[in-house]
Amino acid sequence: MTVSIIGTGQSAYTRHPRAGTTTSGVIAQAVKAALNEAGLTPKDVDGFAVSSFTLGPDHAIDLAWRMGFSLTWLMQDTNGGASAGGMLQHAVRAIESGDARVIVLAAGDLMAGEAFATLVANYNSATRDHLTPLPMSGPNALFAMLTTSQMDSLGLTREDYGRIAIAQREWAGLNPGAVYRQALTMDEYLSAPVVAAPLGRFDCVPPVTGADAVVLVADPAGGRPRARVMSVRASYNADQQGGNGLTTGLSTIAEVAWAESGISPEDIQLACVYDDYPAMVVAQLADLGVLPEREDPSTFIKRRIATHELPVNTSGGQLSAGQAGASGGMHGLVEAARQLQGTAGQRQITARHAVVSGYGMVLYRYGSCATMTVLERAA
């Protein structure tokens, strides 16, 4: 049995949510949109998974009840940028085993000022007890050090990272759902205010309020466009906190994921990687094998990413579309599915295979969770 995404949904991303906006409300909007696209209703759903930092005091079952679901499978994931891949992995197994027939995966957060400040200050006990008192609000300073290390190791420059941000902003200009759509120049990128050297404003994801969702089923009859899941793998590796951060958990799962999918990195026509910072785009593409070991990273960025020869984060990614809390990991999955289903509008590309990666959950220094999904266009 194979499992496919047949519907995607997204609530409006916004930096300044209207009064009365709630986490459960934006997640419900995304779920409704995904079900509408799939041609299904809440009564058809028997499996549900959600990821959110701000859903409390409610839980997955509370949200399922509010949306009118009657379930035989339920999951709540707390792994941030890696949550979409983790939920997808479990959902695929659930459908294959017969535990559910129609599963909705959703993620979203209310990231208004106070909620965001509280989250970054109390992300976990390491952050609360050791980083926030410094003060080090959020992960910017940590990833500034990682970026410096990557620059030294790979010979990259700020201009190289700028080309990634600019390329993604070009894609965002074609995405009505992106928060930042105005063209970005290299001069604007380089002269932007410094957040934590060498990171400037355009190297850091803007927090937004919003949600994303997908609908999964066993491959349907009738030849409808869908994104078939060829492989999905996850790595939860706390040992990486002692490394240099330049290698992610993707390096430990990529080989088996490619083998399961029956294709290689060279077959990929779209990459949607978790882009909390440009340096992590480089790290994940390298760990996935999409950036070949034999090629100079700077040359690869100029030759393939900046020119859109290899479409990377065609929604604009989180750097331009925005990071909706725990929905950041779902954002790339939704975009890849839309491209493969042919529903990406002006930014539509021609692609048969896509790879999606998730990354996140900074325990103390670096992200400790990573997920990899290979998708195929099917009809």
Rank of each mutant, 00 (worst) to 15 (best):
S251F: 01
T209N: 01
D275H: 08
T299I: 11
H308Q: 13
V205P: 00
V282R: 01
A254C: 03
S251C: 09
G316M: 05
L319H: 08
P220K: 04
S320V: 01
R294N: 11
G223M: 03
K302M: 07
V232N: 07
S327Y: 09
G262S: 12
I253R: 00
V312F: 02
P292E: 10
P278F: 02
S235T: 02
G222R: 02
P207M: 08
T248K: 01
R224M: 13
G289A: 12
E309C: 08
P297T: 06
E255C: 13
A227F: 07
G328Y: 05
V217M: 14
A227C: 03
S231N: 04
L270V: 11
A254Q: 02
V217R: 09
L270N: 02
P297K: 12
R233V: 09
R304M: 12
S315Y: 03
P220I: 13
K302H: 12
L270K: 04
G210A: 07
G289L: 10
D287I: 05
G289C: 06
T314P: 08
V273T: 12
N237K: 12
G243N: 13
G262K: 10
Q284H: 03
T248S: 12
A234P: 00
V312E: 02
E260L: 10
S327H: 12
R228T: 14
A321C: 09
M230H: 07
L270Q: 05
A227S: 05
G329W: 05
S320D: 01
A196Y: 02
G222E: 08
P311I: 13
D219K: 14
A211H: 03
P278L: 10
D219I: 04
I268Q: 03
I253K: 00
D275Y: 04
